[in-house]
Design a protein around this nucleic acid. Structure first.
Length: 263
DNA sequence: TGACTTGTTCAAAT
DNA sequence: GATTTGAACAAGTC
């Protein structure tokens, strides 16, 4: 599931493959993913244009165009990118296909179609209008503490709320709380200051390492819950059994003996 | 067959 | 008004 590190990885992928090339044509296979634009406007804007650079905020990726603002991509649950030379081997399924003048294609695929595609004039006002919080890698400790001290919801729910801090999803929130030894149902506003600080530090460390490893789960084996999302496993710390519980409408895995519940 | 999965948004409740 | 809760969406798996 694309969370912040995966989206950063997509950003790097576009930087390495798709910048400064004239777009010859585009194909749109899933118009229902478009927000604040239409097929015609998107086609008119992108054709003859080029990608200049990229910017990530939380799980959103913005690609600056040579003219007329930014192309915005959100990867939902199953979004993926592939840059390739079209030939018979690639009957690539896509929701948006960018065909460059050099003959290469960039395909945005999204099996479950929970992604989003849009045009954005101004990234800062897009983020502000929609009420998203600071990016998880850019928020300061002080800002983090102020926000989390006033939320009464479960800490896991707060961490996943993009309007508080942007970029953390279900899977990374489980790992952050496991490393911090905090039960996911602990109320955010009752956590001791020291614990909030630990959560903040683990959030940064885990996200940063995942980015360094290109969000490759095989290289994150030492992270217990990122590697094993199952109930009834042996916790590597205490050898107790891991539990599954629905928290904030999302499945949450945790170790009930290592992760302390603050009420 | 239908329950379950996730990121986001919306409506309703507090 | 701000915050919280829960349902809805899609489409695939089991």
């Amino acid at each position: 599931m694309p969370e912040l590190p995966e989206v950063e990885n997509f950003k790097n992928y576009i930087d390495e493959t798709s910048l400064h090339q004239k777009i010859a044509a585009i194909q749109i296979a899933a118009p229902e993913l478009l927000i604040n634009t239409t097929i015609d406007i998107l086609r008119d804007t992108l054709t003859g244009n080029a990608f200049e650079d990229t910017f990530r905020h939380g799980k959103f990726l913005f690609i600056r165009l040579q003219k007329n603002g930014f192309l915005m991509l959100h990867f939902g649950m199953t979004g993926d990118l592939l840059y390739y030379t079209p030939d018979k081997k690639y009957p690539k399924v896509y929701v948006l296909l960018i065909q460059f003048e050099n003959g290469r294609n960039l395909a945005f695929s999204d099996q479950r179609r929970l992604g989003k595609i849009g045009l954005v004039k101004n990234v800062e006002s897009f983020i502000e209008d929609r009420g998203y919080g600071k990016d998880a890698l850019k928020i300061s400790l002080e800002e983090f503490i102020v926000l989390f001290q006033k939320r009464r919801v479960a800490i896991k729910t707060a961490l996943m709320n993009q309007k508080i801090v942007a970029g953390v999803g279900n899977e990374f929130s489980d790992e952050i709380l496991f490393q911090s030894k905090v039960h996911p149902e602990s109320k955010s506003n009752v956590l001791p200051l020291e614990k909030l600080k630990e959560i903040y530090q683990h959030m940064l460390a885990i996200l940063q390492e995942a980015i360094e490893q290109n969000a490759d789960r095989n290289k994150l084996e030492h992270y217990f819950f990122l590697d094993h999302r199952k109930e009834g496993l042996k916790c590597p710390e205490c050898k107790g059994e891991t539990k599954l519980r629905t928290i904030g409408g999302r499945s949450s895995y945790f170790c009930p003996s290592c992760q302390k519940l603050y009420t």
